[in-house]
């Protein structure tokens, strides 16, 4: 079973994403900001990451850059409320595999993560 790291500063969003993902994937860790995400990625080496953008300490775009610099093969799906065109473009240009705008359909999240392993 592929493993995942959920990164979102909202506890409720981490709960909901875990509920969506867990029947099919194993969530090995949760992070509430970009710094925690980077530490937990190194510790758990998940197969994929869901990553929010607006977070305290280190935001998702900065975390994405650092994560991919250290782990070029990391599979990251952005899940964020901030879906402005420039931000989506920036995230995909940096190397995110997909960008899901909140409010999201749970099936959209599942399809996006499944596609990472096709």
């Amino acid at each position: 079973m592929h493993t995942g790291l959920i990164v979102d500063d909202a506890a409720i969003m981490r709960v909901r994403l875990r509920e969506i993902l867990e029947p099919e994937f194993q969530v090995v860790a949760e992070a509430g900001n970009g710094n925690e995400a980077l530490s937990l990625y190194e510790e758990t080496k998940p197969d994929f990451v869901t990553l929010d953008i607006t977070m305290p300490q280190l935001n998702g775009i900065a975390a994405l850059k650092s994560l991919l610099a250290a782990n070029p093969g990391a599979r990251v799906v952005i899940v964020s409320a901030v879906g402005q065109k420039q931000i989506v473009f920036d995230a995909i240009s940096i190397g995110a595999k997909d960008f899901i705008i909140k409010p999201f359909d749970p099936e959209r999240v599942l399809k996006s993560v499944r596609r990472l392993f096709e």
Binding site: A10, I12, T54, A81, V82, G83, Q84, I101, K102, P103
Partner: peptide
């Protein structure tokens, strides 16, 4: 966390 996230999503949608 729920109301905070709802506010975040509304504002995010509006920002688009």
């Amino acid at each position: 966390s729920a109301v905070s996230e709802i506010a975040n999503i509304i504002t995010g949608q509006a920002s688009i």
